Deep mutational scan, measured.
Amino acid sequence: KEQQNAFYEILHLPNLTEEQRNGFIQSLKDDPSVSKEILAEAKKLNDAQA
């Protein structure tokens, strides 16, 4: 469930490039146990690119 939530949120971050988004999603698939950390990174990058 946590992985699904992170997946959904990353898909809807407006400021990520397609490449960045795909990278985060691939990381989620590779290691779902760190989905919280991956989501935090994605949000940080999204904010930095706002």
Rank of each mutant, 00 (worst) to 15 (best):
V34H: 05
A42S: 05
A42V: 02
D31P: 02
D30H: 14
Q49P: 05
E2V: 02
E37L: 09
Q20P: 00
D30P: 04
T17L: 06
A50Y: 15
L45P: 00
I38Q: 04
Q20M: 04
E37H: 11
A40I: 10
I38C: 03
S35R: 04
Q3V: 03
P32Y: 07
A40W: 11
A42M: 02
F7D: 06
L39A: 13
A42T: 01
N22R: 10
T17I: 03
T17V: 01
K29M: 12
E9T: 05
E2W: 04
Q26P: 00
A50C: 03
K43H: 14
K44L: 05
D31V: 09
E19T: 11
K43R: 02
G23E: 05
L39D: 00
S35T: 15
E18S: 10
L13C: 02
A42W: 01
K1M: 15
L11K: 07
E9G: 06
E9P: 03
Y8I: 06
K44I: 13
H12P: 01
S35A: 13
T17E: 04
K29P: 02
N22K: 15
T17H: 04
L39I: 12
E18L: 08
L13R: 01
L11Q: 09
I10G: 01
D47R: 09
G23L: 06
A6T: 11
K1F: 15
Q49M: 09
E2L: 03
V34D: 12
A48W: 06
K43A: 03
G23A: 12
A50W: 09
D47W: 06
A42E: 00
H12M: 10
Q4G: 06
E9Y: 15
Q4S: 11
K36V: 10
K36S: 05
S35G: 03
Q49T: 01
Y8E: 14
I10P: 01
Q3D: 15
Q4D: 14
D47F: 10
Q49L: 11
Q3P: 15
L11A: 12
K36D: 12
K44H: 12
F7K: 08
N15P: 00
E2I: 02
Y8A: 09
A6N: 11
S27D: 11
K43I: 07
E41T: 07
E37D: 05
Q3R: 00
K29L: 15
Q3H: 10
Q3I: 03
A48N: 12
E19R: 09
E19N: 06
N5V: 15
E19M: 11
E41A: 12
I38F: 03
L16Y: 00
N15L: 07
N5Y: 14
Q3K: 04
P32E: 06
Q20S: 03
E37N: 06
R21H: 02
L11F: 07
H12W: 10
N46L: 01
I38N: 02
L11Y: 05
I38P: 00
N5R: 14
Q4N: 05
I25Y: 07
N5S: 12
E37M: 13
K43G: 06
D30A: 12
E37T: 12
K29Q: 10
I25E: 03
S27I: 10
E9W: 08
Q3L: 07
F24A: 03
K29Y: 12
L39K: 03
K44Q: 10
Q4V: 07
D30M: 12
F24W: 03
I10H: 00
I10S: 01
D31E: 13
F7C: 04
E2G: 06
S33G: 07
H12Y: 10
K36M: 11
Q49S: 10
A42D: 00
Q26N: 08
F24C: 01
K36R: 12
E9F: 12
K43W: 07
F7I: 12
N5L: 10
D30L: 14
I38D: 00
L11S: 10
S27V: 11
L13E: 00
E18Q: 11
E41C: 05
L45G: 02
K29G: 03
L45W: 12
F7T: 09
P14F: 08
A6E: 08
L13W: 04
N5G: 08
Q26H: 10
N15T: 05
Q49C: 02
K44G: 11
N15F: 15
L13N: 00
N15G: 06
K36L: 13
Q26T: 08
S33C: 03
L28S: 02
R21G: 02
I25A: 06
I25S: 05
N46D: 02
E37S: 08
S27E: 14
S27Y: 08
A40P: 02
E41H: 10
G23Q: 04
Y8F: 06
K43F: 07
K43C: 02
S35W: 15
K29R: 13
H12R: 14
N22S: 12
F24H: 01
Q3F: 15
L11T: 05
Y8C: 02
Y8G: 08
V34T: 14
A42R: 00
G23K: 11
E9S: 09
E19S: 08
D47C: 05
E18M: 10
L16T: 00
V34M: 07
Q4K: 06
I25F: 11
P32L: 08
E18V: 11
K43E: 08
H12S: 07
L16C: 00
K1A: 15
P14N: 11
K36I: 07
A48M: 13
F24R: 00
K43S: 09
Q49K: 03
H12D: 11
N46W: 00
A42P: 00
E2H: 04
D31T: 09
E2N: 03
I38E: 01
E2P: 15
Q20K: 02
D31F: 10
A6V: 09
V34C: 05
E41G: 05
P14A: 02
E9I: 07
N22T: 14
L45N: 05
G23C: 06
F7N: 05
T17Q: 05
A48Y: 13
K29S: 05
N46T: 01
T17F: 06
Q26F: 06
K43V: 09
E19H: 11
A42F: 00
E19V: 11
E9R: 05
R21L: 08
Q20F: 02
K1G: 15
L39H: 04
K1I: 05
R21Q: 07
L16Q: 00
A6D: 04
Q26E: 11
R21E: 01
L16R: 00
P32H: 07
N22V: 12
E18N: 13
D47G: 10
A40F: 11
I38Y: 04
L13M: 15
N5T: 11
K1Y: 14
Q3W: 15
K29I: 12
N22G: 09
P32S: 04
K36W: 07
Q20Y: 01
A6K: 05
L16N: 00
P14L: 09
L45F: 07
K1R: 04
K44T: 03
D30V: 14
L45H: 04
N15M: 08
F24E: 00
T17P: 01
N22E: 11
E18A: 13
N5Q: 14
E19A: 09
A48S: 09
K1L: 15
N5E: 15
S35H: 13
N15K: 06
A50F: 14
D30W: 10
L11C: 07
I25H: 07
I25L: 10
N22I: 11
L39W: 10
E2M: 01
H12T: 10
E19Y: 04
E18I: 11
A48I: 15
Q3E: 15
E9C: 06
Q20C: 01
S35C: 03
L45M: 08
D47T: 12
N5K: 10
Q20N: 03
P14C: 04
P32I: 12
Q4L: 03
F24Y: 02
K43P: 00
F24S: 01
A6Y: 05
R21W: 02
E41M: 10
T17D: 08
Q20E: 08
R21T: 07
L28N: 01
R21P: 00
S35N: 08
E41R: 07
L28V: 11
S33F: 13
L16G: 00
S33K: 12
K36G: 14
P32F: 09
I25T: 07
D31S: 15
E19P: 09
D31G: 13
A6R: 05
N5D: 14
D30I: 12
A40S: 11
S27N: 11
L13T: 02
V34R: 12
L28Y: 05
L45T: 08
P32M: 13
E19F: 09
A40N: 13
N46C: 02
K43Q: 02
L13H: 08
Q26Y: 09
D31Q: 13
I38K: 08
V34F: 13
K29A: 10
K44R: 05
Q49R: 02
E41K: 08
P14V: 11
S33L: 13
K44D: 13
H12I: 07
H12L: 11
A6C: 05
S27F: 13
E19K: 07
L45I: 09
A50S: 14
V34G: 13
N22D: 11
A6P: 06
L39G: 02
R21Y: 05
K36Y: 07
Q4R: 05
L11N: 10
I25W: 02
E2R: 01
V34P: 05
E41F: 08
V34A: 14
I38W: 04
E9M: 09
E41N: 14
G23P: 02
A40V: 12
E37A: 07
E19W: 05
N46V: 03
N5M: 15
R21M: 08
L28H: 01
E18D: 05
Q4E: 13
A48T: 08
L45R: 08
L28I: 05
D31K: 14
A50D: 11
E18P: 10
I38G: 01
P32N: 03
S27T: 14
H12E: 11
A48L: 15
K36C: 04
F7A: 08
K44S: 06
A50R: 02
D30T: 14
N46K: 01
Q3N: 15
N46R: 01
A42L: 01
L28T: 03
Q49Y: 09
D31H: 13
Q49N: 09
S33H: 07
I10M: 06
S33I: 12
A40R: 15
A48Q: 13
A50E: 10
A48G: 12
L39M: 15
A40Q: 14
E37G: 10
S33W: 14
L16M: 03
Q26M: 09
Y8S: 04
Q3T: 06
I10K: 01
A40E: 15
N22A: 11
P32G: 06
N15E: 06
S35D: 07
A48P: 03
G23V: 13
I10C: 01
N46A: 09
A48D: 15
D30N: 05
E2A: 02
Q4M: 10
D47Q: 14
N46Y: 01
G23M: 13
D47A: 10
Q3M: 05
